[in-house]
Design a protein around this nucleic acid. Structure first.
Lengths: 249, 249
DNA sequence: CCTTTAAGAGTCACCCTGACTATAAAGCTG
DNA sequence: CAGCTTTATAGTCAGGGTGACTCTTAAAGG
């Protein structure tokens, strides 16, 4: 609990001689729902350590950047999407990982971010991370560094936030059906939800979704065509939509 | 969204020449409930910038420390409590603040932590922060740096976590009455709760509190003596104890 | 001794929810 | 084309949790 101190201590805690330089990076846990599965954006490492292993996309925070800006910049680079598109994606700070040994080469403190994106076209790898790609959550070996921990934390956070926020719409395209929205919950939580009850709950929450005018067409698949909705302006979900515990999907 | 890059970019994002050194600190938002008010532990700055202003306690992360360890060490130093006592306090990472201009002297990235402590004896200021003291939340001028933002974020987080976790017991001494526990909710949320309903809810949640054997004595004040309880082993609160919106306290 | 204060027991109605049934409208299959 | 499957949507019903409220008990204070 008491470590050696490199310099004289000042009451305000900012002795310029006391600080040790750290590298600061961002790591991205980018989720989407594709083909009825929760998928994660990963890059394959080209060099040691962890050569060949999958890792979260990320990179250094630049001198005049906040971590949030760095995260959005990296997201644009790794997905190959335009800055304008990326600007509208949901990006949220997860937490910071600072174990002294988390990177064997040097002292790196990493601020992790979680991004939720709709089913986008295949990532293009904008020049720099040509091998970034979607993998189903959990369908890979151990990730590099502490990225398994980060990804598990991110998954838990996303699952929890679905309960008490309207975040699920961030996984959906601009216009979506209630079936697609329900699919998000079922995929992230790994459970099956009762269709009528889910519908009743979502429509009873003011501002969660808003109906789109026009014919209730669409749905490439079979079944009765569903009405289209847009995301509402609400962010919180009162009362929450609690995750059922029992039945696995 | 695209900033100049200091060196050649490598696919794995770890070009050793690319990183810029940052100072990494921790800031502590330490809350307690004293005298029916929510109070925060603050230190008065002794030098520029923000000389004389109140600031959150904190300090540098040392070379072989994680941010969490640094936070707990600083908490022990600022409160003057023993390491053993501090080891049991609730300490939780809030988020990281990394605006390039948040400290006018140098590039400092700060990992903020929230601590919840029971009504402890007056902080002693263990040598180093002799002027750390409790102030009622909001009863001070603008804090130094971005600490107003950090503190507001921390307050919001604590209020939200009371809803769906058993965290309120962290504000209480080892043995407490349901009235004291209710006081925590009322103080943090700034609302008044119905006594019987609160009692029913808490006792109906398995593992939230556990009754202490013995006579139902105690309570220095007037009124019928209350039974004592200890914190249970549960951490989550299902279903949540939702914060009422209407009536102010 | 009466008032005040707070703990604790209990009631009641409403709302949300889970479970379930039924109908409509599409695609698929033979 | 007929029937089956699939999905959307409407509706019912019972149980649990909660808000609002009343009442009793047990202390302290004037």
């Amino acid at each position: 609990m008491s470590a050696p101190r490199p310099g004289p201590r000042r009451p305000d805690g900012y002795d310029p001689r006391a600080f040790e330089p750290f590298a600061v990076t961002v790591d991205l846990a980018v989720f989407t729902v594709r083909e009825e599965r929760l998928q994660v954006l990963l890059v394959q490492r080209g060099q040691e350590p962890y050569r060949g292993a999958w890792a979260l996309p990320g990179g250094f925070v630049l001198p005049r950047e906040s971590a949030g800006l760095a995260a959005r910049r990296e997201l644009a680079e790794e997905t190959g999407l335009s800055d304008a598109t990326v600007a509208h994606l949901h990006l949220e700070q997860l937490r910071t990982y600072s174990d002294p040994d988390r990177d064997p080469r040097m002292r790196v403190v990493s601020v992790a971010y979680t991004a939720l994106v709709p089913d986008l076209p295949e990532p293009r790898g904008g020049g720099d991370a040509a091998h970034a790609q979607w993998l189903p959550y959990g369908s890979y070996g151990p990730l590099a560094f502490d990225h398994d921990t980060i990804l598990a934390d991110a998954h838990e956070r996303v699952g929890a936030k679905l309960e008490y926020t309207c975040l699920a719409t961030a996984f959906c395209p601009p216009e979506f059906t209630l079936g697609e929205l329900r699919q998000v919950y079922e995929t992230v939580w790994g459970v099956e939800l009762d269709r009528p009850n889910f519908r009743r709950k979502v429509l009873a929450t003011p501002g969660f979704v808003q109906a789109v005018e026009g014919p209730p067409r669409l749905t490439g698949g079979r079944g009765k065509p569903a009405a289209l909705y847009r995301a509402g302006q609400a962010t919180a979900l009162h009362p929450p939509l609690l995750r059922p515990e029992g039945r696995q999907k």
